[in-house]
Design a protein around this nucleic acid. Structure first.
Lengths: 339, 339
DNA sequence: CAAGCCTGCTCAATCGATGAAGCAAGAATT
DNA sequence: AATTCTTGCTTCATCGATTGAGCAGGCTTG
């Protein structure tokens, strides 16, 4: 029996009436614990069939309102404009669904205010758990959630007050810098310091990457000064501006660079092409993050790919175990082969 | 007064008790229609202050359950692994929030079954409206939603039963093909047919793009046969396989190609580099979709960029106006300049 | 000064799903 | 035959926010 103009959605009460039974029986059948509630197989089948016919869809709002746990799991993420965050989100959804959880994701455009608003919205949804990915202020988010009794896990950027899963930024940067230094020496026979571009000087990841960058220089016996560290932000325009300004007061420019994310690389590459400063000799580049097309840009670019599958496994490991210790899990990134 | 171990979240009843007033007054104040309900400014301020102090967060479940409209707006999207869908999602969130709506997004991994499951989940959330982006079977999604009285809008791929917003695929493909043909003639002095790679032969966009592709050939007086249309799917591996197989039975290979999406381009480029088939003479390429790093890959690649801001404005135009006519809005894509 | 009006609230039903408690009828046990 | 068990349900309170209806007290108005 098809309804022509359906205004109201089918509820368990509608199904109960159609089946000549009670709403609670319908509820028990549809949410799967009808065996515990001793509903007969016959009635269960009847109700299931009816629900299908009527196109019944559970009202999550009502269900969650009543239940103790919502089974909703939230994630806030800065942007969707690169493969790193893109694959984080895809994996997150897949792993959440695998566990019968309902993932809700929202992006904050790297805006600290939006970050908190997003967290508040997540709390309104009654999330059981919130993953703060690349949050500018993960501790503030954590505080908000803690007040509502909601656990948080930090991803990509660590926080001081909740378990965190991040890349081994120091190790990755060390390996990446070594490679770029080696490439410079091979190509130009020079052992000269590299430039570090992109990221925020205030965030943990950038600090650690700079440390790896610095140590790789020291280890190779290459001196460099701090003006070569341009942690001017992630946005392409910021990286581009930094390059422009640097070129005005520095000559010759460094032979190679460590670019902190594909997003910053976008700006750096744009500047390189437009300014013509490197027209004679391509700079040796290293990028902390991976993108398939960057990999095709030429053999002068090395990349470090963060191990998203392992990172998310670690996140769900924490969720599944219910651990709340303030651990920081560091996942080694993958150093991509050139070409 | 800070609670040390908070198990229960603050509700309007808690606030009512603290303020010495009723829950309904608290509700009215916090949801903004306290003026209509003639609550005094004094009480309103008191309640607002208390709510802030207590870190009150609305329970969406309870609120939505009671209200007529949920103000939740859903979107299903195939993947997060390219700039096109990434910017669609970012824009969608921004425009939704601007209107006081709550966006919920989920990705379906191009899996038709997941697509329907996702739509069902959206219905459970009581979405007021669902945007089906790039859906394999938008009409099936529409049917599901219609049965629950929820309107749908198709984005990127059109459907027959709901308003749709798509790119002008024919026009974009025509312009792109013209350019690639012109580039081939300029570079190689040959007027030879191009190869079409990627996309699904069954989806509207691919059909339209192939039509534009064919018409551009006809217009240029270049004959081509249908074996040159390789609509083998979007995945990089599929494009790569198609190229490999083609190379086995065809020689010489076409001078240029029309690649249907950056995702397929990833596979095509990989094959080009690995196989060495084009080592002597780079093929002239055209890509229907834009990516900043592809733009840097060289001047042998032309791109057509879908106008995401305009597309989403059109979507929200339809939402705001409440229109339900079966219009198909076609947004002209932007033909990127080379370099 | 009675009738009506305005202000500033409170009361109670309601949304749909859930699950503890309870109950009727038949089966098994003593 | 009386008691206990088991099966297969139903009843009803509950989650938290919303909102129509209502009510008390002060203020106008004729």
């Amino acid at each position: 029996m098809k309804r022509t103009t359906q205004t109201k959605r089918t509820t368990i009460y509608d199904l109960a009436e159609l089946a000549g039974t009670s709403a609670s029986a319908v509820s028990a059948v549809l949410n799967g614990n009808w065996k515990k509630r001793r509903i007969s197989v016959k009635l269960a089948e009847k109700i299931t069939k009816l629900a299908e016919e009527q196109g019944y869809a559970l009202n999550m709002q009502a269900s969650v309102l009543r239940r103790e746990r919502s089974k909703i799991i939230g994630m806030i993420v800065p942007k969707y404009d690169n493969r790193y965050f893109g694959s984080i989100v895809e994996q997150f959804e897949a792993l959440a669904r695998e566990r019968g959880l309902f993932p809700i994701i929202t992006c904050t455009m790297r805006d600290p205010a939006l970050e908190l608003e997003a967290a508040r919205t997540m709390l309104s949804y009654q999330v059981d758990c919130l993953i703060a990915t690349g949050a500018t202020d993960p501790d503030r988010v954590m505080e908000l959630c803690a007040a509502a009794g909601v656990r948080t896990i930090n991803l990509d950027l660590p926080g001081a007050r909740a378990p965190s899963v991040i890349s081994d930024n120091y190790g990755g940067a060390l390996a990446l810098t070594r490679r770029v230094l080696a490439n410079c020496e091979k190509e130009y026979g020079e052992k000269t310091p590299l430039l570090f571009v992109g990221g925020r000087g205030t965030d943990h990841n950038t600090v650690e990457r700079v440390r790896g960058f610095r140590d790789a220089h020291a280890e190779a016996g290459v001196a460099f000064d701090e003006t070569l560290v341009q942690a001017v932000g992630y946005a392409p325009e910021k990286a581009e501006n930094a390059m422009r300004q640097l070129a005005e007061r520095m000559s010759p420019l460094p032979r190679g660079m460590f670019v902190n994310s594909t997003i910053s690389l976008e700006g750096v590459m744009r500047w390189i092409r437009r300014s013509g400063h490197y027209a004679d000799r391509v700079p040796q580049l290293g990028c902390f993050d991976w993108d398939p097309f960057v990999a095709m840009l030429g053999d002068h670019i090395e990349m470090v790919r963060q191990d998203v599958p392992k990172m998310l496994e670690a996140v769900f490991g924490i969720i599944d175990s219910g651990a709340t210790e303030l651990t920081v899990v560091q996942i080694p990134p993958i150093v991509e082969k050139m070409g």
